[in-house]
Design a protein around this nucleic acid. Sequence first.
DNA 1: ACATAAAACTTTAAGCTTGAAATATTTTGC
DNA 2: GCAAAATATTTCAAGCTTAAAGTTTTATGT
Lengths: 156, 156
Amino acid sequence: MVAGPLPAPSGPGKDRLRLWIRLLRASRTIEAELRERLKKEFDTTLPRFDVMAALYRVPEGMLMSDLSRFLLVSNGNVTGIVDRLVSEGLVARARRNGDRRTSMVRLTEEGTKSFATIAAAHEGWIGELLGKVSEEDARRLTGMLTSFRSNWEGRE
Amino acid sequence: MVAGPLPAPSGPGKDRLRLWIRLLRASRTIEAELRERLKKEFDTTLPRFDVMAALYRVPEGMLMSDLSRFLLVSNGNVTGIVDRLVSEGLVARARRNGDRRTSMVRLTEEGTKSFATIAAAHEGWIGELLGKVSEEDARRLTGMLTSFRSNWEGRE
DNA sequence: ACATAAAACTTTAAGCTTGAAATATTTTGC
DNA sequence: GCAAAATATTTCAAGCTTAAAGTTTTATGT
């Protein structure tokens, strides 16, 4: 997936393949750096950060299924991450009266404070790592990726 | 990492944060689709595909450490993936005369044939998944991501 | 009412991933 | 020549990830 074009392939469709390779390499490079900093500075992981970021936006909490849909990961995956966050006291599950299959997952007070601290550092890191991208290019790129995504989402 | 801006954050640096979120969502969406197709149509995985793609470019083979550097993953990770590919007969390890610590890893004949088939399908999928991105936009985006990356690589 | 389907979630097995420790080999500095 | 450092790789423990199978609860059709 990360294969680089050494003989520099050409032909129809090669531009999109090259784009995909760059996209993947860029996101992996940044992801690796973020993972390392989260570990070193806050002793946490990217998946935990993702879950907490999702919950931070919604103080009343989210269902497990909403969480997994939002994060683009499987149900079972979220179960494990939330289990660990619960055992650390950062997240709480609340049984609901209406539907006993579901439970609302939300940040605890401690989780909220913890996330706010980490998120501030995180935003600084992104600013640093993407520092060479001008604000204008950032907006243009974002626009392209957004339209790509909404096109894509029309499928399935 | 995938957190979406619901209240639409604004302020200095927010454009880069938004860019990062889009970038990550785009690559995760495409990655998930590729993973599913690789599994369903060829009964293989993305990491196996990555390793084979890296080796395909270099018939004489690569060292384990070159492989892990190229793929942006850890050493121990590559060991496991290569182990499985070897046990399936797609990849071979060859002890070197010069340095007995290292071994050259290369695709077997079967591995080469197998990869060629999968890669053709893969390129088609990318063309399909990125079909809405015009060739010109693809080149522009690629250029931006490339310059980002070369800037980035100057660090560490 | 009641069987059946659907929905929400958890569990499981297999594989991926990392960072750190361990092993083996080669290189370097006296 | 030889101890110490450096290099290449593997092993290990913990956690992440998925798809598939299992559990519990709710909704649906008759």
